[in-house]
Computed example of a mutant assay.
Amino acid sequence: MEALTKAQILDTALQLATASSWEQLRLCDIASALNCPLSALYQQISTKDQLADAWFDRADQQMLSHCYQGRSASERLYLAISSWLNALAPYQQQTGQMLLYKLEPGHVHLQAAALLRISATVQWLREAAALSASGLARIGQELALSALFVGVFVHWLNDRSDGQQQTLQLLQRKLSAGDKLGLWR
Rank of each mutant, 00 (worst) to 15 (best):
L88V: 07
V154G: 03
R76A: 08
A130I: 08
I118W: 03
S119I: 15
D162K: 08
H109F: 13
H155Y: 06
P105Y: 07
E142D: 15
M63C: 05
Q141E: 15
L99Y: 03
A89S: 13
Y68P: 03
L64T: 00
Y78R: 13
G140S: 13
G70D: 05
S161T: 13
Q94E: 10
A133D: 12
Y91T: 00
H109N: 09
A133I: 12
W84G: 00
T95L: 04
S72R: 07
Q92Y: 04
A113V: 10
I139S: 14
L100F: 06
Q123V: 12
T121C: 07
P105T: 05
Q111D: 10
R117Y: 05
E142T: 08
S82I: 06
S83C: 12
P90Q: 03
P90A: 02
E127H: 13
H66N: 11
A73Y: 01
F149T: 03
A144S: 15
Q93G: 05
G140R: 12
A147Y: 06
G96E: 01
G140E: 14
R160A: 11
V154N: 06
W84H: 02
H109W: 06
L85P: 02
L100P: 03
N86D: 14
G70A: 06
V150M: 07
A112E: 10
C67N: 14
Q62N: 07
R76P: 00
I118A: 03
R76D: 02
Q97G: 08
P90R: 01
A73V: 02
A80E: 00
L125W: 01
Q123H: 08
C67F: 10
N86H: 09
H66K: 09
G70N: 09
H155T: 14
M63P: 00
A137Q: 12
Q61C: 05
H155S: 11
H155N: 07
S82E: 11
Q165W: 07
A147D: 13
S74R: 15
A73M: 11
Q97R: 07
R126P: 01
W156P: 04
A133L: 13
G140P: 05
Q61T: 04
G140Q: 14
A114Y: 12
A147Q: 14
E127T: 15
I81R: 01
R71P: 01
L88R: 02
L125S: 00
L115F: 12
P105D: 02
V108P: 01
Q69N: 11
Q123R: 12
A120Q: 14
K102G: 07
Y101V: 04
R58K: 11
L103M: 15
A144Y: 06
L157I: 15
H107M: 13
A114M: 11
A130L: 14
A144M: 12
